[in-house]
Amino acid sequence: MVQSFVAYIDESGDEGFGKLRQEGKTGQSRWLSLGSAIVSAENDRFVPSWRNEIMELFPKKQNRDLHFRYLNHDQRVAACSVLAAKPVGICVVASNKETLIDSPKFEIFKRKQHLYNYLVRFLLERITDACAKAAARDGDSAKLSIVFSRRSGTDYQSMREYLCLMRDGKEVLRPVRSINWNVLDPDNIRVENHSIRAGLQIADIFTSATSSALDPNEFGHIEPRYALTLRNRYIRRNKRILDCGLTLIPAIGRCPLSNEQLAFIEEINKK
């Protein structure tokens, strides 16, 4: 038997390196995060009702499009609290852009969409692995459909070609992990508008909640409460969230983190 899953994917932050945000100043994000909301095909039909349940908490909001950045702190906590009780998985890959500036590959990552595609690969490696293992527990195989939130300036055809290149084993440098191509067919990828797909709005909450715990705001502060509220929804590998439900690039031992960021990682990764 085949178990079907859907992963809705959104991002938080930007790819730019021109002027990274510093304390007391505005600028481009210091992190780029790509995240997903993963549901079984059976539960996918309930996703709009989850979004509506959240919006019913904010009766004064005229715009019924759920978007993390338009919610205040209390509304964000409330939204995460609702989703923490739903049968949905979270997977986020977060790149510390500052570490790329002195990298030998910096000129590559400066090119349009290269960092984004790089994170897509990491994300899909983890999602396909999690879906395969979830289905295998019942003796089944898994199939995954992907829905990306439409992103201005992104060439999704180029991204599909990149995925096919990996599928066909034509990468110059082979990754440590790989996307499970028995689970994902690049043809099962769609791109839709955030405003019309509740699943993309849920993915936005998950990705932005995680980014808030890692990417300091213009005052130099992070806010881990949103992600910690959702802690039990992050997918795990060997009972650990780190490098599965939450992956840092570079890995934690090489990623410069503040004491606040380290405390968040330690807390969310508790067994």
Rank of each mutant, 00 (worst) to 15 (best):
A132W: 07
E171P: 00
N188R: 13
D14K: 05
Y70W: 08
L242H: 07
Y118D: 13
L32C: 05
K112C: 02
T207L: 04
T99H: 01
S4G: 04
F122D: 11
L34R: 03
R231W: 09
N52Y: 01
D129E: 14
P175R: 13
L57D: 04
V77W: 00
Y234C: 06
R240G: 08
K133S: 10
K271P: 05
A134K: 14
D155C: 04
Q22S: 14
Q62S: 13
M166R: 13
R177W: 10
A41S: 14
G169F: 03
R76N: 04
P175A: 13
F109N: 09
I249D: 01
A203E: 03
C91G: 00
V183S: 01
R137T: 15
E267K: 12
N96G: 02
V120F: 06
L83W: 03
R111H: 04
T229L: 13
L173V: 15
I265W: 00
C255V: 04
L228I: 10
R225W: 00
D138L: 05
A79I: 05
E260G: 02
Y70V: 03
R190Q: 12
Q3A: 09
A136G: 08
K271R: 13
E125Q: 13
L71Y: 07
L246F: 02
R190T: 12
A213Y: 07
P175C: 10
A37Q: 06
T99C: 14
D138N: 15
N269H: 07
L163F: 12
S33N: 03
G16L: 08
T247R: 08
N96K: 06
Y8L: 00
T210C: 11
S212C: 12
I38M: 06
R240Q: 15
I268F: 02
R69Q: 10
S33C: 15
R121L: 09
M159C: 11
E161H: 11
S36W: 01
I241L: 00
R254A: 13
S158E: 14
R51F: 00
Y226W: 05
